[in-house]
Design a protein around this nucleic acid. Structure first.
Length: 486
RNA sequence: GCCCCCAUCGUCUAGAGGCCUAGGACACGGGCUUUUCAAGCCUGUAACACGAGUUCGAAUCUCGUUGGGGGCACCA
């Protein structure tokens, strides 16, 4: 059996989409699992949609996710170039071959003419399809138009009354009637190929053995099959992946709201929001595939060992942020100190919390790790470790800040200052001691103290938190809170 | 409108005719623990879209209905 070769072939029209990430991942896993080659190919044949920097961003996102490709832009390979805009001559040559063999033909219709044709078809309630008017052109007329530089396209000639069947690895046999197929444009009037031509030509020339792509391509697969036949090429295997869905079950291509939160669609968004690549990869891997066991947490290596196309499902999967959050929290809790520092720094710096030592960051993280869904939460829920609280939670203030509180905290303050070593046992001793001598329960001190020190009502254990903040900060914040809250 | 795909708890899914009193995970509810919030442990609610068939027996097979999705460009 020849070596397996698969490709991820995105269009550089923007950031990498999470659906694209999953497609890339499945290709990657399939290649790695079977000792094959994973190719990255850039499908930039639409010059009107090209976005500057998108290719670099795509590559960056794949790298972030840990999906290294074997051949592609920047990596090279024996069947390059891997950027379609650099291969136009190849497509043109192949298209011409089909024209010569009568399997494709020139057409010179203007946009207006085509638009009028479609309007007419709509009126007659017949399926929109090119009516082959260009086939009436004589060879002489075609030659003359070409020579005089009239802009034209090359269309493939679809055979009539034929059933075209594909055997999809995921979906089984799917049949299409050739009569429903349009005479697809293969080469546009700007000389660039359309997806259909470029895709088929490249997959063949690059030795792709398995085409693993999104389900949105299923309806155009018969056109691709026809092209393989026209060229006399051997067919690759096809596997059409189920779509990733928004919470409303529509195709996940635009941002939608879920539980009042925006559902981001770009890998870039998740990176920025403090999700770990391991978690995002693990999560999307399970959207449409499962190992048949009850294991849910997988390293990339484990995914590689367990993956198979046979276990990919057929129905679309909703991208469920809540589960991603949970999975991310699992990975966060397992993060090593060194890893954490490296990953959290950029996010903290962006929030203006940069002025802190590694040791301090680690201490904070140890207190916070069970409470994080994303690294972003460090900014949202642990800001008081990096700057003075600016406000005090109203509900907690109302509930816990009593007239006698200031007096209690004054005693605590004095106790803290007289403490030999400012450690957990010492701090707890002071607070419990004041509570006892004042004849109140510990919680009567603990809650207002937490409010004074952090400004909020939730967080790590108070004594641990105080040790990390340090004596000076605690005393200073007690003073400030007493002044502000009375 | 036409073509294609899909259909198990709210969500991701297990299930390839009897192992199903339909299992797991997230989310949600309750409890334990407790200085709060988490984490952890225990526990609960919750699904085979519907209708015909096939079969001794159907979540599993067939057909239909309904519902959802995707596609119908000189975009990918």
């Amino acid at each position: 059996m020849p070596q397996i070769r698969v490709r991820f072939a995105p269009s550089p029209t923007g950031f990498l989409h999470v659906g694209g990430l999953r497609t890339a991942l499945y290709n990657f896993l399939y290649a790695r699992r079977n000792g094959g080659v994973f190719i990255l190919r850039i499908e930039d044949t639409d010059r009107t949609r090209f976005v500057e920097g998108a290719v670099q961003n795509l590559i960056e996102s794949l790298r972030w996710a840990g999906l290294d490709y074997d051949e592609g832009p920047g990596k090279g390979g024996s069947v390059g170039p891997y950027i379609q805009s650099e291969r136009t001559a190849i497509y043109k040559q192949h298209a011409l071959m089909l024209v010569e063999q009568g399997k494709a033909y020139y057409a010179f219709d203007s946009e207006e003419e085509l638009e009028a044709m479609r309007k007419q078809q709509e009126k007659l309630r017949i399926p929109p399809k090119y009516d082959r008017r260009a086939l009436k052109l004589t060879p002489g007329e075609v030659k003359q138009k070409l020579e005089s530089g009239v802009p034209g396209v090359i269309r493939m000639k679809v055979p009539e009354a034929e059933t075209i069947a594909i055997d999809d690895i995921i979906r089984g046999r799917v049949e299409f009637e050739s009569d429903r197929l349009d005479d697809q444009v293969l080469v546009k009037s700007d000389g660039f190929p359309t997806y259909h031509l470029a895709n088929v030509v490249d997959d063949h020339l690059m030795g792709v053995t398995h085409v693993i792509r999104g389900e949105e391509w299923l309806p155009s697969t018969p056109k691709h099959l026809l092209l393989y036949r026209y060229f006399g090429w051997e067919l690759p295997a096809f596997a059409h992946l189920p779509l990733l869905l928004n919470p409303d079950r529509s195709k996940m291509s635009k941002r939608r709201m879920q539980d009042g939160k925006q559902v981001d669609v770009f890998v870039e968004d998740y990176r920025k929001r403090g999700y770990l690549p391991e978690a995002l990869v693990n999560f999307v891997a399970l959207l449409g595939w499962n190992p048949g066991t009850e294991q849910e947490i997988f390293s990339l290596q484990e995914l590689t060992e367990a993956f198979s196309l046979e276990r990919v499902g057929k129905s679309g999967a909703v991208f469920n942020i809540a589960k991603l959050d949970w999975m991310n929290s699992v990975y966060l809790r397992e993060l090593s100190d060194a890893d954490l520092i490296q990953r959290a720094r950029p996010i903290l710096e962006e929030a203006g919390f940069a002025n802190t030592s590694d040791a301090y960051l680690v201490a904070v993280f140890h207190l916070m790790k069970d409470r994080l869904n994303s690294l972003d939460d460090l900014v949202s829920f642990a800001g008081y470790f990096f700057k003075e609280p600016e406000t005090y939670d109203d509900a907690s203030k109302k509930k816990n800040w009593k007239p006698e509180t200031a007096g209690h905290l004054h005693l605590v303050r004095a106790g803290l200052l007289s403490l030999g070593t400012f450690d957990h046992a010492g701090v707890e001793g002071v607070i419990r001691g004041v509570a006892e001598s004042s004849g109140v329960g510990g919680s009567r001190l603990i809650h207002p103290l937490r409010l004074a020190l952090t400004g909020i009502a939730i967080g790590p254990g108070l004594f641990e938190l105080m040790v990390v903040l340090g004596r000076d900060t605690c005393v200073r914040r007690i003073d400030r809170a007493v002044t502000l809250l009375g």
